[in-house]
Simulated assay, not measured.
Amino acid sequence: MAEILPLDKALRPALALLAAGEVVALPTETVYGLAGDATNGEAVARIFEVKGRPRFNPLIVHVSSLDMARKIAVFDAVSLKLAETFWPGPLTLVLKLREGHSIHPLVTTGLDTVALRMPRGFASTVIETSGRPLAAPSANSSGRISGTTAESVNEDLGAKIRLIADGGPTPVGLESTIVKVGPEGVRILRPGGVASEEIEAALGVKVLRGGVANSEASVEAPGMLASHYAPDAALRLDAAEVAAGEALLAFGPARIAGAERAVAVLNLSPAGDLREAAANLYHHMKALDRTGAGVIAVAPIPATGLGEAIRDRLGRAAAPRDG
């Protein structure tokens, strides 16, 4: 299994492994990322190999400064305002690649755009110290539940990687919001840790929504596949009652009918707080999946604020799966 080190001991070995073209699991404010040097083709190929990720699904490139980002991509005025408002933080921007950039083409899967994000904390320190951008999708097997603790990453990928930097539970608990600015306006390709209302408030305009890809040709950015973030159990969304033998993923102070019949119950937020619910989502999904229940009934969750991103992840987790 991988070596798990606290952050105060993980920096030097992480830098050494990354310099050698290896991949390491690092905490960010969203989820744990499986990081490799975005300029090194062998490292990027290793990310796809470890995750079992389809090669047509692009990766997010993480940077430590706006200056580093501008050497990779061309910023329009609106994207620049979003970066200045929300970076560092859980916002990813899809931008045109700059001529002469150093990002390996495996990262962008042949697209002429790149997804860029500036994380907070340890991941940013690693990028700044190394001077190299990192490709870092979520540290989990492709299509499965993202890791929000070092232990969950180790359970999933520990046999395939050498180091996990342990920063404790990630505070946001959901992947970043992905935004693309185009002639038609500002479009959210994937809702996430920055709510659409926050983006609208920053720009003073309504944002467009839409980002489900059902084919290789329609993937514009990471996290767009229709089936994703999935447990072994089936998910039944907006459940009004719990059937015998089901587990219950609850939300808020009220319990839906038949909750007493559930084989296990976990509440995303007893107080109905969407930020708490987002932070708990993947951990609770994994815990209920371990009960062996064939179905997880999910209580209704509002679609406002971070509820939009929570519902997006649950919808993809409940989608029909290949095979």
Rank of each mutant, 00 (worst) to 15 (best):
E3N: 12
G185A: 03
R144W: 08
F56G: 03
A195S: 14
A77Y: 12
P133E: 00
V295M: 05
A250K: 06
P302N: 08
L189C: 06
M118H: 08
V194P: 13
R55D: 08
G223C: 09
R275P: 05
L163F: 10
G110Q: 04
V74M: 06
P27V: 00
A19W: 09
L157E: 03
G147F: 11
L82H: 01
V50D: 08
G131N: 12
P6Q: 04
K96W: 03
K286G: 11
N214H: 12
L91S: 05
P169L: 11
E260A: 14
V24Q: 13
R120C: 05
P88N: 06
L203A: 02
I47F: 12
G252T: 04
G294L: 06
A16I: 09
L34Q: 10
K286R: 15
G168E: 04
I72Q: 00
T170E: 05
P231C: 04
T85G: 12
P320S: 13
A247C: 10
V50Y: 11
R144M: 07
V186H: 10
A234M: 11
A14D: 01
A213F: 09
V242S: 02
I161N: 09
A279M: 10
H101C: 06
P54K: 15
I310P: 00
L111I: 05
N40G: 06
R98P: 07
G167Q: 05
I145D: 06
L249N: 00
S130Y: 13
V265H: 02
Y32I: 02
N154E: 09
E197K: 15
L225V: 10
G147Y: 03
R132P: 07
A271V: 03
L34N: 10
L11W: 07
A139M: 06
A279L: 03
A221P: 05
E184P: 10
A139K: 14
T304E: 13
A259S: 14
P222I: 10
S227M: 05
R117Q: 02
S102K: 14
S176I: 00
E220L: 15
V263Y: 02
P270G: 11
N140K: 04
V50S: 07
A262Y: 01
E128K: 15
A287Y: 08
P119R: 01
E22N: 11
L266N: 09
G193D: 01
R313A: 06
T92P: 09
P119K: 13
L235K: 02
L134Q: 01
A303G: 10
S141C: 10
A77G: 06
A136P: 03
P133V: 01
